[in-house]
Write a protein that binds this DNA or RNA. Structure first.
Lengths: 331, 331
DNA sequence: GCTCCGAGTGTAATCGATTACAAAATGATG
DNA sequence: CATCATTTTGTAATCGATTACACTCGGAGC
């Protein structure tokens, strides 16, 4: 493995000059530069980033933590994140924690040990306590979640409004017994959407019933239990809002195999807008989130924070809302 | 940011001793060790990995390159890969190239610049030429593909046998006009499956027709065109094998929206065994690949190669076959 | 009491780059 | 041609860890 020293010797210059050539320092004389470049090519030299990173005290690497990978929702966010990292010549490590807390620690350790310069937490990959512990020392962006009072940029959609719009649409169709299958009840996106849901109900004069809301993970059995739990209380359902396309697809599956006692033509609106909503039968009406952009923007904002380290003050913090829209399909 | 030097000063020992404590060197006297550990905790010291990496000339990082992320197929492989990396205390960078060659270069550069110690190429994320260029200098594992003559471990299923079995099943059901929608025709998994397909046809005395085979990417329009291309030649189809669950789901979608002129009850067998095959309507019969294990094993093998650098000789190279199985569903 | 040995610790080189500062080369000017 | 300003290049410190080697110190053996 050739080092800068060998290149310097071969080119008959000092390591400093080679370094300057590598970094495009305009002070080097063109002739020297060419000579060095020739040697670099001849020797097939590549700078050792480990050395560079140490010297510069910067890894040019960030981390994005996802709850899981098995939902296309996250893949799309990750895709945007990778693009943003690439565009800014940063490396990005995308990690999933699969609800194992100790795995989260490995990613946070990358921050603590200088391997990573900043981190994006997507969805409920982190809780508020941990966040408060980290927010003063490290550069953090939250993607699709919003914790007021946290010293971190948050990138998300207007979940309250989206929840409102979804509910409104079902009401418009004549639904008045609308169930809500949520995700993790502690997540801010969930509570915001429910606020919108309540508001729409109120506006329509439909009484709000908390027992029409049930949380479920993105697993078939969870979703089935959640829906059947509501039905089991003797509550009629003529419309459903789900937290994700995946949940909605599971409901369709349950209806079809008759493990969920709902009519095939139930009005249903899901969140996310992944391709899943298009390949089910019937296809699913969804609130489309700008997933790619959410990922892209999160990373972009994080990198801005890293670069503007000088502009210390937390003026830039806050909430960034990206637009969503509804796509009406068969459900 | 506290460094080892400050810890040493605070604990009244040399940096060497602190380093020994950090690395659990048994020579340090227990009393000293405790003293140092106390200071480390007090100062909330974390070793700087950038320095460690440089000194040890090892990043403990590997790369896994995926063609894309939007197929749950890849997510599942990535999940296994992450687990293997975690189990071996390696970092893993999972990157997708989205068929942009220049993005692939960034990942390969991580190898060349010492940021990564090895790489796993999944599916057709790399071509044979590039592979031949890299194989002598770097540690490489291929996942789900197999190039004979390449100095890299390959982890995959027995694609020929799987293709044979899928075809056989359709023949058993009485199909005799079996179309094959493949992926990238240059990939070894595709050609191996087709071999199996041919073999099963031959065995059943059904003539093989190359024009019943068409390649398609994992996009609705591609798949639709491929299928309609075969139909358009006037060739009847009473059975279909697809390269992926995703393709199969698109075919169902096309049938339903009548943009693909096939009966709803067409016999279809796809490859992969992702959750997609369960949420479609009808559900899809698939050859289930051990995706998680494919990812896990690939990374595990790579790390073994890295650790056994001493055992230079390429004795360990070769093909690792993991078992697959068929799950019969509604198609 | 002296030598020797091993346990425990410290000193300093090293990994491969960047960069402040010093020094040399170049060129302009009178 | 001497002087000085400006380019261009080189020297050496530095980032923060690891580790070969040297050293100290106490006790065992004679």
């Amino acid at each position: 493995m050739s080092s800068i020293k060998e290149v310097a010797k071969q080119a008959n210059v000092s390591v400093a000059t080679v370094s300057r050539v590598l970094n495009n320092d305009p002070v080097v004389k063109p002739a020297t530069k060419n000579k060095v470049l020739r040697v670099i090519k001849e020797m097939n030299y590549k700078p050792n980033m480990l050395a560079k990173n140490l010297r510069k005290q910067a890894s040019r690497t960030i981390v994005m933590v996802l709850p899981s990978m098995s939902n296309p929702y996250f893949s799309e966010i990750a895709r945007g994140a990778q693009a943003a990292a690439y565009d800014n010549a940063y490396n990005i490590i995308i990690g999933t924690i699969e609800s194992k807390r100790w795995i989260l620690d490995t990613y946070i350790n990358m921050l603590k040990t200088n391997l990573a310069e900043g981190i994006v937490f997507v969805s409920s990959s982190v809780n508020k306590e941990l966040l408060e512990e980290l927010m003063d020392e490290y550069k953090i962006v939250l993607c699709t979640e919003y914790y007021p009072g946290i010293n971190a940029t948050c990138v998300a959609i207007d979940n309250k409004r989206a929840g409102y719009e979804a509910t409104k649409e079902l009401i418009r169709r004549g639904c008045s017994h609308i169930a809500y299958i949520t995700g993790n009840r502690e997540s801010s996106s969930v509570t915001a959407r429910i606020e919108g849901y309540k508001e729409a109900l109120k506006e329509a004069g439909i009484p709000y019933r908390p027992d029409r809301i049930a949380g479920a993970k993105n697993r078939f059995d969870h979703v089935k239990e959640a829906v059947n739990g509501i039905i089991g209380q003797g509550l009629p359902i003529d419309g459903i809002i789900t937290h994700s396309d995946l949940q909605a697809s599971y409901i369709l599956k349950g209806i079809k195999e008759k493990s969920i006692a709902l009519p095939e033509r139930v009005g249903m609106i899901s969140f996310d807008g992944t391709f899943l909503a298009e390949i089910t039968n019937p296809t699913i009406t969804t609130i489309v989130q700008p997933l790619y952009d959410l990922g892209y923007t999160s990373v972009h904002k994080l990198i801005l924070k890293l670069v503007n380290e000088s502009a210390e003050a937390g003026e830039e913090e806050g909430l960034v809302l990206l637009p969503h829209h509804m796509v009406i399909r068969e459900t």
